[in-house]
Amino acid sequence: MSVRSLPAAALLAAIPFALPAQSIRNITQGSAIRDLWKPIVAEANRSVVEVCVNERAMVLGTVVGKDLVVTKMSELTLSSSKDNESVELSIDQGEETWPCVQIGVDRAADIALLRVTDAELTPVRWRQKEEPVPGSFLASVDGSDAPFGVGILAAASYVHTVPRAFLGIRFANPNGGTAEIEDTVEHGAAEAAGILGGDVVVKFGEAEIGDTDSLRAAIRACTPGDKVSVTLKRGEETVTVEVVLGTNTSPMRSDQESVWGELSDVRSGFQRVLQHDTVLKPEDCGGPIVDLTGAVVGVNVARAGRIETLALPAADVRALVAKLLKGAAREGDGER
């Protein structure tokens, strides 16, 4: 059970000796099982990297070409990125570090494609057979000898419903009239951005907003996770704020959070997903999941619930990479 919240280091050291044998902890994911996976995941471990923003490791990445890595886009956002500071991307594997650039993103899949400078990486070996069936054993790897998580495929791949973007406000004039905000939803996107009740939206991204309907249409055109610049009339003042749009499910109730643990900020809208029963942390996403033959069946993309862990299937990741590469080629060498 959790000992990490204990304040004193001395205490941390003391706890393991005091743990009684009957302690409630997961044994299905225990070391005996994970040790058996070591030789199986060795190959995939050569194709997993840590993706760093300004030298800080943020999330895992999966090598999909000699100089190409996919990762979970939304985890690359620095919490302090408001002030437009320059963002340096790099990847770490073992002791080595390479700089990289983002050459494409797919917002719905929440995937970024990175091109790594001067690297000869080892791409994953994708599973060629049909997708695994429920009950298939799966391991999530991060480059350590043993997988950090093991589990089973919980359900065959299914299409995840596409979510709408939410600003997290209540309209003062829901049936038409000026786009005045009555108040903001607790823990919603607008609240986080500092929007206040009484503000009137006059511009949303590039769109001029004249009334409630035009604001609704502008929000509808966005995807959760989009960063939008919103201009507001606040009394006599004009204020501009940056909003990261959420989903209607994203404001997590605090009592739920306390029994679920931390979830991914972006955890829906992925199209087709594989759901498995491995408990991950949000920063554990972006890496490969491996079947018992050592082949990679997908890329972890979200911790969507206490036990809803989602991965993009291998075939979909490959199609996505091909699409993003084509797009990058069209834009010349489109760095962001």
Binding site: Q22, I24, R25, N26, I27, T28, Q29, P134, G135, G151, I152, A154, A155, A156, Y158, V159, T161, W260, Q275, D277, V279, G305, R306, I307, E308
Partner: peptide, 29 residues
């Protein structure tokens, strides 16, 4: 959820009923 069959979870028994209640590490929500 539409299109999703009941997700399966595999686990082990951590407490048997005689110990007060039946506990497993099949994570639920």
């Amino acid at each position: 959820k539409k299109g999703r069959t009941a997700p399966a979870r595999l686990g082990r028994v951590l407490r048997v009923p005689e110990e007060g209640y039946l506990v497993t590490d099949c994570t639920m929500q």
